[in-house]
């Protein structure tokens, strides 16, 4: 979709970037994030890590759902602690949580349109933007279907569509490919690369091959800390340099991933 010139002008007034300084988040006694620092400009960033590593918590902080216990957050050059800047951030935000709730009696179009309106998109642009989002996720033939009639994979695609409907400058996706078949995953990776050319995209996933195919940069989290920062090719090189005995995995990038995790658990850094 061609961005309108007005939208392009609005986009230039915000910085496309995320800056997190020494973020710590706790839930009771459990430390979900521990002194995490992260800076990102436009591109697609993969977040990998085992269950409970802190990926979803990090995404929720960037989605302005959670306020961190300590640390500084700047999103798109703006401070989410200021209410008018928070509102500006949220106009440019797209978020798909891991647990995705929906309204069963809404049609696909109504559901995405609802969120387009809540994101304060211009009413004149809403319908065409929603139609475009539906096409981009390949749900044209289900646009008027009720949400309760959709399969799990289709629901996930609707979730992706509502996240991208406002052409967000910051797009956060938590496990977006759950339930998608291989063809849909290929289409989704293409969509991510396209959006990443002009936006900051964070994708949290367990599927290492999705990260390899779509992400320019990778962060691996373990026990609330970032234990690896680099690009996917670097991770593959690490995987190529370890034996099967040292790190499990069916591909070089999977072996690289497990090697990094094993090294972090042993309190050391992996050789690059």
């Amino acid at each position: 979709m061609v961005m309108t010139s007005k939208r392009r002008a609005e986009r230039l007034m915000i910085e496309v970037g995320v800056d997190l300084e020494r973020i710590t988040q706790t839930f009771g006694r459990q430390r979900a994030l521990d002194d995490v620092t992260l800076h990102a400009g436009n591109g697609v960033f993969g977040l990998l890590g085992p269950n409970g590593a802190g990926k979803s918590t990090l995404l929720r902080i960037m989605a302005t759902v959670l306020r961190p216990k300590r640390g500084e957050v700047r999103l798109l050059g703006l401070n989410p602690q200021q209410s008018h800047e928070l509102r500006a951030i949220r106009r440019e935000l797209g978020y798909l949580p891991q647990q995705f709730g929906y309204y069963p009696n809404f049609t696909v179009f109504e559901f995405i349109e609802y969120f387009a309106l809540l994101k304060e998109m211009s009413p004149k642009q809403v319908r065409s933007a929603v139609a475009n989002a539906i096409e981009r996720v390949g749900l044209e033939d289900r646009a008027k279907a009720k949400m309760k009639s959709l399969s799990g994979g289709m629901l996930r695609r609707v979730g992706i569509a509502q996240a991208i409907v406002n052409e967000p400058a910051l797009l956060l996706l938590d496990e977006p490919t759950v339930g998608l078949d291989p063809e849909q995953r290929v289409m989704f990776r293409r969509l991510l690369r396209e959006i990443g050319e002009r936006s900051v995209v964070f994708v949290s996933t367990h599927l290492v091959e999705d990260v390899a195919a779509a992400c320019s940069d990778v962060r691996i989290l373990n026990q609330g800390r970032i234990v690896y920062e680099g690009d996917a090719d670097d991770l593959k090189r690490i995987g190529a340099g370890v034996s099967d005995a040292d790190a499990a995995g069916d591909s070089e990038i999977e072996r690289g991933y497990t090697a990094v995790l094993l090294a972090s658990r042993g309190g050391r850094e992996v050789d690059r």
Partner: peptide, 14 residues
């Protein structure tokens, strides 16, 4: 009250 609350709470409408 709202099944889509996790997404609704990240939208711009006050």
């Amino acid at each position: 009250a709202d099944p889509a609350w996790e997404i609704v709470r990240t939208t711009a409408l006050p």
